[in-house]
Amino acid sequence: MQKTMLKRFLLYPFVLVCLLCCTSCFEILEEINMNSDGSGSMLVTFNMSKSKTKLASIMMLDSINGYKVPSEDDINEALKDVVAHLEKTAGISDIQKTKDFENYIFTISCRFENVESINGIFKELIQKQNKNGQTAFSTKNFSFEPATNTFQRHFKYDVSIKKSFYHLNKEDRKVFEDASLTSIYRFKNPVKSVSNPNAKIAPNKKAVMLRVDAMGFIMGEQNVANKIQLTK
């Protein structure tokens, strides 16, 4: 109660100035280590460290731009839900999570039996989005064909992404200005070719990195889709 009063009457003006002055951006790092048999491990890192001053300011507020600000407890609960969801997904095991509220870095990692298991993680979520948002996102995000030794990251741009972005107010849009998504895929077999022109193959031919700007992704100028041909 006292903390809320203090926030309202005293901290708000300064927190708001902090919000005005501090930059905001985030980076999502998606890392997959594939074994020859199609199994592997996955690590997703959500790094908001560069915006930590702004986030620390936001966390002092109850709401911002009409959105409720989640507390540390809310974030912990959300992470627990993600872990619970992963535990229920067939073919997913060894789930680990880390949280760093000082630097605002959160990670979730797991092992998968095959890439279909990864698709299973998001299937329900995408189906729900397609139903509610009348979109047509594919539930197949990853595929691996052992016969041809081809790994694919599927993604078909939908104009609803741009529309959703423009539905946000100007202040919210700023969050995406310097944000990025980085994918790193590692393989046991050397990489022969990649289809995405922005993807880079490591000199040892065992890894592919693709960095996409959030704005390029939202506007449909950059895509995460990639077909990676491995040698046999």
Binding site: V17, L29, N47, K52, T182
Partner: peptide
């Protein structure tokens, strides 16, 4: 509300070697 002071803040970033480790 007095002046805005420039303060050095740290953040975590990633550096990649040539094999993308």
């Amino acid at each position: 509300l007095n002046d805005l002071q420039e303060r050095e803040v740290t953040y975590t970033d990633y550096e990649y070697d040539e094999d993308y480790n």
